[in-house]
């Protein structure tokens, strides 16, 4: 499946997805509650240690931040202008810890385990009308539809290029959307036909 998982057998990998999510939420809240740069820096160090325990190179931790580097730059610049560079540094460290920890969750947990975790977690919500089987059906269907729709989107763009850019993309997109909705109708019939 198309996920970001890095296989491994470390304690971080083995921890149940539910616990990992809980830890992430706890650290995230603590970072904002304990409003101190010393704490944030300690958490940063702890996070990097966790990456090593998970057997991941520190470049992986950096990889979590890299896509957001320009946002980091903007935030830092704004803080330097409006407050001070030390506050800017503090804000960046806090943000970096959050991104790296969340990234660690993603890197060490298989999507399918996470989906199972979600389904198990939804069990108690049955009482308020959430049907875990429906949810897992919807998740599977989405994963099933993504390649189909990526294909549709690709075809529409290609057709537009082939006919010249003056051609209105809407005249291609609208029929494509209508077709996919009709497809969904038949998929729905097929699910009913298989007695769900």
């Amino acid at each position: 499946m198309l996920d970001l998982y890095q296989a491994g057998t470390s304690p971080v990998h083995m921890l149940k997805p539910g616990w990992k999510i809980l830890c992430l939420a706890a650290v995230g809240s603590a970072l904002f509650a304990v409003d101190h740069i010393g704490f944030s820096t300690a958490m940063l160090a702890a996070t990097l240690v966790l990456y090593r325990i998970a057997g991941l190179p520190l470049s992986r931790a950096w990889g979590q931040i890299r896509p957001a580097v320009w946002v980091f730059g903007l935030i830092f610049a704004a803080q330097v202008i409006f407050n001070s560079w030390i506050i800017g540094l503090y804000v960046l460290i806090r943000l970096a810890v959050l991104l790296m920890l969340a990234g660690l969750l993603t890197l060490t947990t298989r999507s399918s385990d996470m989906i199972d975790g979600i389904n198990a977690g939804l069990g108690p919500l049955r009482r308020i009308g959430v049907n875990p089987e429906r949810v897992s059906l919807a998740i599977s269907l989405t994963l099933r539809f993504i390649p189909v729709l990526s294909h549709v989107v690709h075809d529409v763009r290609e057709a537009q290029r082939a006919r010249g850019l003056d051609r209105n993309i809407l005249s291609l997109a609208i029929p494509a959307i209508i077709r996919t909705i009709r497809m969904a109708d038949e998929v729905s019939d097929a699910i009913d036909a298989r007695g769900s």
Binding site: L2, L24, M100
Partner: peptide, 24 residues
Amino acid sequence: ALVAIGLPLLAGGRGGAGVFFGAS
């Protein structure tokens, strides 16, 4: 939910729980 569990479905191929803690 699929983004949160680590599928790189956000524009630019981003995904994972981290995006929810970021600036956006």
